[in-house]
């Protein structure tokens, strides 16, 4: 009879396991985003952690100070520490887009960005785009076209759509299918999403008022 000691099940190699406990080197080169404001001078590097470190994040125009372990993702910091819960945790490995936020004008998966990396960058979440009472035109288009069922993927879709339309104000249907291919829905709302994005593109150009 064979006995063995085992570790808890893990899904193979994980980014945070790799970083865990060893401290982490943050340098501006970690962020492959040209033209972004850097927190630290070009080329410098600093070893952070493993204990919590104080950081300040710029979220929807407000400065928020918190202490995070360097291994904590931007998504977990938003949700668990700041109670900003619009971005959802679903796949937790950069596949489904439910955690999409805008970092310096670019849509990113918040589960693939460490909170410490996001310092010095401009973070926009779904909460910054509009409210229930004052819907952003993209949100209004999602409501009008019923581009949501359970709604769990919706904030990520709305944010990704907003960032997409900022860069592609005149999209074709093919552009939409390519540009929003990084967001997944389980209920199957893509028919509505396709309509919503095209409608929002019109609204944002002043085609007709919706939001």
């Amino acid at each position: 009879m064979r006995k063995k000691k085992t570790k808890p099940p893990q899904d193979g190699f994980s980014r945070r396991d790799f970083l865990k406990g060893a401290g982490i080197t943050v340098s501006t080169s970690l962020l492959p985003m040209p033209g972004t404001a850097a927190a630290r001078p070009e080329g410098s590097s600093e070893v952070l952690g493993p204990n919590p470190v104080p950081i300040t994040l710029s979220i929807n125009g407000a400065a928020r100070s918190l202490k995070v372990e360097p291994r904590v993702t931007l998504l977990d910091a938003l949700r668990n520490q700041l109670d900003i819960t619009g971005a959802k945790k679903v796949c937790d490995r950069g596949v489904c887009g439910a955690c999409t936020v805008i970092l310096d004008g670019r849509a990113v998966y918040a589960c693939n960005v460490l909170a410490v990396e996001a310092e010095g960058h401009k973070i926009e979440t779904i909460e910054g785009l509009g409210t229930e009472e004052h819907l952003h035109p993209v949100m209004a288009a999602f409501v009008d076209n019923d581009a949501q069922q359970c709604g769990f993927c919706t904030p990520g879709f709305v944010v990704a759509c907003k960032a997409f339309l900022d860069k592609h104000p005149n999209p074709t249907l093919a552009d939409v299918e390519h540009g929003l291919g990084g967001n997944l829905c389980r209920c199957g709302t893509y028919a509505g999403v396709r309509e919503a994005v095209l409608e929002a593109a019109k609204t944002l150009k002043g085609g007709h008022a919706n939001g």
Partner: peptide
């Protein structure tokens, strides 16, 4: 007819179980 909770969901304000963070919460 548009769904009643559409604006709450589309604006990210709808609170799911995963989003409930009472004070003193343990994980």
């Amino acid at each position: 007819i548009k769904r009643l909770d559409g604006p709450e969901k589309a604006s990210g304000r709808a609170k799911y179980t995963y989003d409930i963070n009472p004070s003193g919460l343990l994980f």
